[in-house]
Structures are given as C-alpha cells and as structure tokens.
Design a protein around this nucleic acid. Structure first.
Lengths: 228, 228
DNA sequence: GTTGCGCCTTGACTTAAGTCAAACTTCAAT
DNA sequence: ATTGAAGTTTGACTTAAGTCAAGGCGCAAC
C-alpha cells in the first residue's frame, strides 16, 4: 500500500483530508522492529512517536531490582511515544516489540509543524492523549484502591468486552506479562486464578479463560465482594 | 483585574496574542468554590475545565470502602478537568476545593471551537496533557515499583526542589492528605517518618520537615537502600 | 520419541503494610 | 482557660502479597 492510503487507514487520522494525509505521508518513516527489540528506553531522548502497523508493543518500566510494570500492550494502529512529543524531551517509559512489528515513525519537529497548520490533527492528538490519561487514571485506581483479585476481575471484564461477545478470552499475553500488567507477580496471579476457579467465577483453559459469572467478577472488581 | 489581562497572566496561555486572550476571555466564566465544595465527582458529565486563580484543589478517587487516592494537589494557575474535554464525556476522577478557591471555567464546546481556530492554543493544551501523562506515569511507578519509604523519599525530594533552595519543606498538606497522595494511610506514614528520623535522614518539625541527608533519601527513592 | 527449556503451578515461609483501638497533641471556638 | 474536634502517634495484631525453592507441564528441536 502506498504511504498516503496507509495513513488514511489509521483511525487516529480519520477525518483528515487527502491533502493532510499526503503531508503526513511525506514525513512518516517506515521502520521495522523484530521481537524483543526495543524502540526506546525510559529516559532516551525523544525524537518522535510511532504508530503500529502490525504486531504488538509493550510500554513498561522496570524497578531497580527488576520488577516490571507494564503500562500498556498496544496493537495494530495504536500510537505510542506520543506524550514525549509535546512536552519534555525524553521518553517517560520504555517500549519493546513483543512480535515482529512494522511501524510508522513521525519525527517530532516535522510533526509539530504539521499540527501548527492543522487543527484537525491537533484535536485528534488531544483526544488521543486524553484517552491515555483516562487509561492511566484507571491503572492508578487499580493499583492503589483494589487488591489483586479486584484488578484481575476488572481486567478480565475489559478483555471480554473488547474481545468477543462470548465470555471466553483467548489469552494473547503470557501469564507472566499479565502479572506485570496487573502490578503483581506470576505466582500470585496463578493462585488467584485458582481461587476464582474454585468459586466458579471462571474456568481456566490451556490458552484461554472462560468467564462463568460476570456479575460475580464485577462485584469483585468493585470491591463489593471478596474471594473466600 | 479585567478578564483579558487575567487570562494573559496564566502560564498555560503564555504566548497567545492579545486577540486570542480576548477570545478566551469572552468564553471564560468566573466561579467560586468554598473549602470542601466539590467541582465535580468522578463520572459526572464533563461540561468544561477549570483554571485555579487562588486556593487549592485536590483531584482524587475513593475506593468503595472509603480509601482515598489523591492524584494531584493543584494550586494557583493550574488547570484541571482538561482531560475530559477532548475525549470521553465524563470526568475520570473527582475534584474538591481544599480552600476558598476562585476559578475560571471554560465550557467544552466553546473552548474546542477556539482550538479549532488556534493551533498555538492547541499546542499549549497538548503540552499540558503530556505533562499530566508524565506525572501519572511517575505515580504508577511509585505505586507499583516502590514501597512506601521510597515513595515518601521521592515526594520529599520533589517538594524541596520546587519549594525552596533550603532543605526545609513547610508542610502545606496535612499528613492525612500526604498519606492519600502517597497511596498509603496516616499510621504508616507516621511510622515511616519516624524511621527516617531515627536514621537521621530528616528532622520532623511541627509544620515542617527538614531534609538532613538528600543523598540518603535519593538512594531510598531509587531503591538502592532500605530503612533499617 | 526424548531432551531440554520456558512457562506455570504449588507449598512453606517472610514481610510490608493495613486494621483496630487507644492515647496524645494542636488549635480553634466558645 | 476549657472544651472539643480533628490530626497525629503508638502499640498489638492481622493479612495480602511477595520470596524462595521445588516440581510439573507443554512445546519445539533434534
């Protein structure tokens, strides 16, 4: 696909005119990262932001003693690194490819120039940053105000909404990664999955989790209920 | 002060032309909230955002069983509620005045119209949201990757940087609020302040904390050291 | 196949931090 | 000054979740 139509197909850029897409196309750079490769590390000088064309990327931080907190796992068409473009000069977290991941790269300078001339684009970016803020707010809430069973319940409910009308979630992240996403460790996650199974809230399959009691999980997520 | 010069004096609007300030002035509404009054609650329909003229505002969430996590405590000239303007239609957290707090209110619809015509304003908002994202990222890091002494150390260091060249911090928030800001409870905070005093890292005064060992606190904040 | 290496689970133990309850301090208001 | 309410400290106890270590499972490569 040529660059302009590629850009036009990205949700973030919906609503832009063909001319505007062409301008974006003129500054975008195709890049390719293979599994495990990092896009940037926390603290790196920020030179631009990325949009995923395929594959998966995790945004994360490590503690000095090696614990990992994953902020997001992003997929096709999702942007990342965008917060560093408009304020501050270094990336606030690290980004690593979880699979073969082709991306588009937009250099800060040129992209900001475009925004200056294109309020539609500016509003799209504002909406994007606001969404991110919202997601991070939810993460803080989970970490600070819920215990691990509640976080897990909330996570499962979100996954099944976005994933399929049926209540079976195909696990596309390893349980290790899932633990890091929930701000805990694999052992704890394993134990809590077991407790949830015992209480018939879920059924754990080989690469999947089936939700048996949505109401029960919701109660858990909202703190109205505890695991036995 | 007339509205236009008031607006021109707000850092967020630095760099805007007098004409642009006048346009903002035309849509801004002065409001006044007294101590304890809420601006909005989590989940409320978002009708606009605010800029603080004086006083203090806390942005927070409550857990169902009453625990509070404070996201920010904001002061003069700082905006809040801005994330809800550009995406989603409800506020993601609650806002309450901690003192007598006059504010400017900007209604979503009219403000977005201005942005559409004014890329400088758009870039200012983008920078603002990016800063917020950065701060929230740091909060997640603190909650997930640091234990309470590390969070407290980081907090004290930030306060003394922004507060005075000297290493004495005048406590402008109650220790209750400080605990909620750090994602813990007053009892725990109290105990850890004591342990820090015991190790001569700080000295706690009546309404102040004096930093005795900046290096030691930094080590604590970065996880290179533990309290005895 | 079977070998080997991640991933996942399980158990016993430790620990940081929360809970509950009581006492003490501060400060503002009568 | 006295009262009272809120903020703060302290102690004894509980608990959620992390650590450490061992063992099992599943899958890919030879």
């Amino acid at each position: 696909m040529d660059m302009t139509s590629l850009i036009a197909s990205i949700p973030l850029f919906q609503g832009l005119s063909p001319g505007q897409c062409a301008q974006l196309a003129a500054i975008a750079v195709r890049k390719y990262h293979s599994k495990g490769q990092t896009f940037f590390l926390e603290g790196d000088e920020a030179e631009g932001f990325y949009i995923i064309l395929a594959g998966r990327v995790k945004i994360f931080k490590l503690s000095p003693d090696g614990k990992e907190q994953i902020f997001h796992i992003l997929e096709e068409h999702e942007p990342f690194g965008e917060a560093a473009v408009f304020a501050g000069s270094h990336y606030p977290a690290s980004a690593q490819a979880l699979a073969e991941t082709p991306v588009l790269f937009f250099p800060t300078r040129k992209f900001v120039d475009l925004i200056r001339r294109d309020p539609t684009l500016a509003l799209a970016m504002l909406a994007l940053l606001s969404m991110r803020l919202r997601k991070l707010t939810a993460l803080v809430e989970n970490l600070s105000l819920k215990e691990v069973p509640g976080r897990l319940a909330a996570y499962l409910l979100v996954q099944c909404d976005g994933n399929s009308p049926l209540a079976t979630i195909s696990l596309d992240v390893s349980k290790n990664q899932m633990a890091a996403l929930l701000g805990t460790i694999p052992e704890t996650l394993s134990r809590i999955l077991k407790r949830m199974s015992d209480e018939k809230l879920i059924k754990t399959g080989p690469r999947s989790i089936t939700i048996l009691d949505k109401r029960g999980l919701a109660d858990l997520a909202e703190g109205n209920r505890k695991l036995g």
